[in-house]
Computed example of a mutant assay.
Amino acid sequence: MLFEKLTRPALYRLSRNDPELVHERTLRVLGATAPAMGGLRRFSGADDPVTVFGLRFPGRVGLAAGMDKDGRALRAWPALGFGFVEVGTVTHLAQPGNPKPRLFHLPASDAVINRMGFNNSGAEALARRLARHGKPGVPLGVSIGKSKVVAVEEAVADYQASLRTLYPYADYFAINVSSPNTPGLRALQDKGALTELLAGLRATSVALAGSGTPTPLLVKVAPDLSDDALAELLEVCDAHGVAGLIATNTTLSREGLSPADARTGQEAGGLSGRPLTERAREVVRFIHDRTEGKVPIIGVGGIFGATDARRMLDAGASLIQVYTGFALKGPGLVRELNRALAGRG
């Protein structure tokens, strides 16, 4: 409550109501103060360990990709109560992303529209940072995507390059084929393209693992897929040993926006936040039912409180992630979710 009423409004005033500048300044502060935050974790909710796709998570609540693309505040996130952290989406080639402005707050709808376009410093830069500073102390996921300048026909090699570069550091990889902000990317969810991509990444992962167990590969799906398209995607994932699904990415739909946000809602990009709550849960339930509960799911989209989190787990998710809810409500949300989900088995 204090964050929502005082801290966030102050950040927006200091940052000239620019959401991306608020994001940047928040990351900068968290990165600078992370070394002094180690003792905070005990205040952020009870630990509740769970094992999912072979990894031991100290809690079910994770930070979604997009918040800390380049891993600049890794040690801060566990201190705030996150049981795992997903960095990225990172691409093989460094890229500036789409022109600004590209991040828009829709306050009446508890929503955000972004068309960031995978702005990041590249896989090599992230690998150097992880080699220098180490991992965060909780499971680390790395979301990888296609470099914008690389043709869709050459996407497999591009993803493989990121996988090779970051393989020593990731506890799991999220294969992002569902962002709406890179031209042609969502076409990689189609059966033929996804088959080729997953076959290539699986082969690379097995080769890099040697005699060890390959690092889990997860696929992040769009909320805009039809049931038939999602069912086909699940068949491809099953055929290529995908360890789990992340549901969902942002949506192109504008359903559920408040009339007060109608003008900003016309901005191009992916919508996240409260309007996505129900659809994300529907996709999680579809995946869970279709796979008979055999495929672990990370549920993400429109989680703003304990009820949302419990319903996501009831729909079939094993873990949850937050981004927009955390950005708008602050660290207290993580504590609330941890306490709500403690003892879920």
Score class of each variant (00 low, 15 high):
residue 65 A to V: 05
residue 120 N to R: 03
residue 43 F to R: 13
residue 83 G to C: 14
residue 93 L to P: 04
residue 97 G to D: 00
residue 98 N to L: 13
residue 100 K to Q: 14
residue 52 V to T: 06
residue 104 F to Q: 02
residue 120 N to K: 07
residue 126 L to Y: 06
residue 58 P to H: 03
residue 84 F to Q: 06
residue 111 A to Q: 05
residue 54 G to H: 12
residue 83 G to T: 07
residue 48 D to Y: 11
residue 82 F to D: 03
residue 38 G to Q: 12
residue 107 P to H: 11
residue 97 G to L: 10
residue 69 K to P: 01
residue 82 F to L: 07
residue 70 D to H: 04
residue 39 G to L: 12
residue 100 K to L: 14
residue 70 D to F: 04
residue 100 K to Y: 09
residue 70 D to S: 06
residue 116 M to H: 07
residue 40 L to V: 12
residue 114 N to G: 11
residue 75 R to K: 14
residue 72 R to Y: 04
residue 62 G to T: 02
residue 46 A to M: 12
residue 89 T to K: 01
residue 85 V to W: 04
residue 50 V to I: 15
residue 87 V to P: 00
residue 121 S to M: 14
residue 76 A to H: 02
residue 109 S to D: 01
residue 53 F to P: 07
residue 60 R to S: 04
residue 47 D to I: 13
residue 81 G to I: 08
residue 100 K to S: 12
residue 71 G to V: 00
residue 123 A to N: 06
residue 52 V to S: 02
residue 114 N to A: 13
residue 57 F to N: 01
residue 122 G to H: 08
residue 92 H to K: 03
residue 110 D to C: 02
residue 65 A to K: 04
residue 110 D to N: 14
residue 46 A to H: 11
residue 108 A to H: 15
residue 108 A to S: 15
residue 61 V to C: 01
residue 81 G to D: 08
residue 126 L to Q: 07
residue 53 F to L: 13
residue 122 G to K: 09
residue 116 M to D: 11
residue 68 D to Q: 05
residue 112 V to Q: 00
residue 61 V to R: 06
residue 72 R to E: 04
residue 41 R to V: 07
residue 87 V to D: 04
residue 39 G to Q: 11
residue 122 G to W: 09
residue 58 P to A: 07
residue 122 G to S: 10
residue 56 R to D: 15
residue 110 D to W: 01
residue 126 L to S: 08
residue 74 L to A: 02
residue 86 E to M: 09
residue 61 V to G: 02
residue 66 G to N: 03
residue 101 P to K: 02
residue 43 F to Q: 14
